[in-house]
């Protein structure tokens, strides 16, 4: 890892104004805190996994980094430059360096455009003077690279399977050779055998092209497979961060422990024998998050003091941080077992 992070998020918050339907124009809108003071760094060539259940703000965080959703507080520094302070020209350059792969492979492709046009769009947008033959050559190259036959260039998205559509999405994201690729649940809409193919393709491309990657998923086993480091989010807040194998083998935060114990083990005997920590209840509404620690309403270790203040992130060394002051309290996994 080099000293200068490629991307670093400093206390990034994203808040949406929600207007109640039918309200007067002058009634104040409700604030939805989708992402709350999130900080992390990504080094060039590194893969950061982001996990959390639905509604934990993972996708919003991705959109804030790409710049399709404005941040309400904090800074996102790309190459040391603040995204919010960029001129239109710099922003365009940033858009070339940061590309995104979307969750729903078919919805992310314009049904009226051919695959060739879709993949070429970033190239045509950022290098409008590229001759047509050159565009076609580069589209064919990248299609081959992601495992699509280049002679399918004139086909339309609806003629492809989900896995192929996701490959098209990846080809579009990579044609400009970006430095950071953000994958927003790229495999959750695919079936398991295709998931593996796409994840392996992404890992291969990441290695070959030296990409930094943010890989978002709610499936911890997929994230563990691909990531160097993992960040666990809950209700817009980071609960724990650590190296991938540390996080999966020695989780400290009660939420991470619950997540990990929910990953099934493909061996019925082991699966039945292991202690399970099941957290109950629903994710609280981000319109009205709990005071103090956002996880306290479902936390097995919750104490009275958890409601008082937002817990500080405790540094356990080697990049392992946990936002729970009671993580050393008796092990809930053991207690549950």
């Amino acid at each position: 890892m080099s000293d200068q992070p490629l991307l670093s998020a400093r206390d990034v918050s994203v808040t949406f104004d929600i207007r109640r339907s039918g309200s007067w124009p002058w009634t104040p809108s409700l604030k939805l805190h989708a992402v709350n003071s999130v900080s992390f760094d990504i080094a060039p060539g590194e893969c950061l996994g982001v996990v959390g259940e639905s509604g934990s703000g993972k996708s919003t965080l991705a959109r804030a980094i790409v710049g399709t959703v404005p941040t309400s507080a904090g800074q996102i520094l790309f190459d040391g430059e603040d995204l919010a302070a960029m001129s239109a020209d710099q922003r365009r350059r940033h858009r070339r360096d940061v590309q995104m792969v979307f969750q729903d492979p078919l919805a992310a492709l314009n049904p009226r455009m051919t695959v060739g046009e879709i993949i070429a769009e970033p190239l045509v947008t950022h290098e409008p003077r590229t001759p047509r033959a050159e565009v076609k050559k580069r589209v064919a190259e990248i299609m081959e690279r992601v495992g699509l036959l280049p002679n399918l260039i004139n086909r339309y998205p609806h003629e492809f399977s989900g896995g192929q559509c996701q490959r098209i999405g990846i080809a579009r994201a990579l044609i400009l050779r970006p430095r950071l690729l953000i994958c927003d649940e790229p495999v959750s809409a695919l079936d398991v055998s295709v998931q593996a193919q796409v994840v392996n393709l992404l890992m291969e491309l990441q290695r070959d092209m030296g990409l930094a990657m943010i890989f978002i998923a709610h499936d911890l086993s997929v994230v563990k497979h691909i990531s160097d480091r993992i960040v666990v989010m809950y209700l817009g807040t980071i609960m724990e961060r650590a190296e991938a194998d540390v996080l999966t083998t020695r989780p400290e935060h009660p939420y991470t422990q619950a997540l990990i114990s929910s990953v099934p083990i493909p061996d019925p005997a082991l699966e039945r024998a292991r202690p399970r920590l099941v957290i109950e209840g629903e994710l609280p509404s981000p319109l009205n998050p709990p005071s103090g620690c956002v996880f306290r309403t479902r936390c097995p270790k919750a104490q009275n003091s958890c409601a008082q203040a937002k817990p500080e992130t405790i540094d356990l060394g080697n990049g392992h941080g946990v936002a729970c002051p009671f993580h050393k309290a008796e092990d809930v996994l053991a207690a549950a077992g």
């Binding site: 399709t68 070339r96 590309q99 729903d104 492709l109 970033p122 947008t125 999405g169």
Partner: peptide
Amino acid sequence: EFVEAAVAIGV
């Protein structure tokens, strides 16, 4: 999502 993808590309 394809419109969002276009925005993200910088179109």
